[in-house]
Amino acid sequence: MAAIPDTNLDRFEDTRTPLRRAFDSIPPSLLTLIALLVFWETMVQWRNIPEYILPAPSAIVEVMISYWHRLWPNALVTLGEIVFGFFCAVCIGVPLAVAIVYSHFMQRAIYPLIVMSQTIPKVAIAPLLLTWFGYGVTPKIVIVVLLSFFPIVINSVMGLKATTPEMLHLAKSMGANGWQTFWKFRLPKALPSIFAGLKLATVLSVIGAIVAEFIGADKGLGYLILIAGANFDIARQFASIILISIMGMVFFAVLSRVERIVVPWRQGSDLAGEG
């Protein structure tokens, strides 16, 4: 709430040259990234580092273009696993969180097991899933669900429990029934926390898909990375890694945008540094 006047003061008297102003408008993180890429490029060129150890950024871009016909269909397979797995995790996780919050039995019988199950490394059970579900997309989706489901449940439970006793008393004193209390009080109160869980889940779902493809697959970006590694084709590995990273970032950005639409009241408090 207090941060706004300072930025206004800057704008009040702008003595910067046009060039300086243009430079300032570039996000600093982007500048850092560009500097790193330039450093990488020059080091590779200058020290003559062979391409099977570390290809230059320019070489990676070339490979991305020439290899696109293989990258693109495989990326779509991985993207499908990520999005579908994430969707399943949301469909299971959020209702389960509601059940845990509303049912004393679920809270005591299921919730501790969910928390404990998180000590099992999912990667360790991946080969098992392969045995059960075969080489197809199913085991990949199952792993994505297993990985991303946990933060969704935990954060949703936390959010749904954030309703204070006073708020529930207030709802009752206004004659709200259980249904109204959920839709008008509990759920909106939980939304910021649920979205925090969803955003964490996007990151984990990307990891889940790639790991699942490492264990056993005949398509997908994880599979491409393995094949390229076996052939010492570092440039193709980088190309796949960059593509999967971009997919992850876009997924995260889409979710952040949805959050802004669904939870608009959070924007103000983010500015105030409370979020």
Binding site: T164, E166, L170, K184, F185, K189, V263, W265
Partner: peptide
């Protein structure tokens, strides 16, 4: 009745 607590219990949204 109407009820007012020490916390305002306004809905953020």
């Amino acid at each position: 009745l109407g009820i007012v607590f020490q916390q305002d219990v306004l809905l953020d949204w």
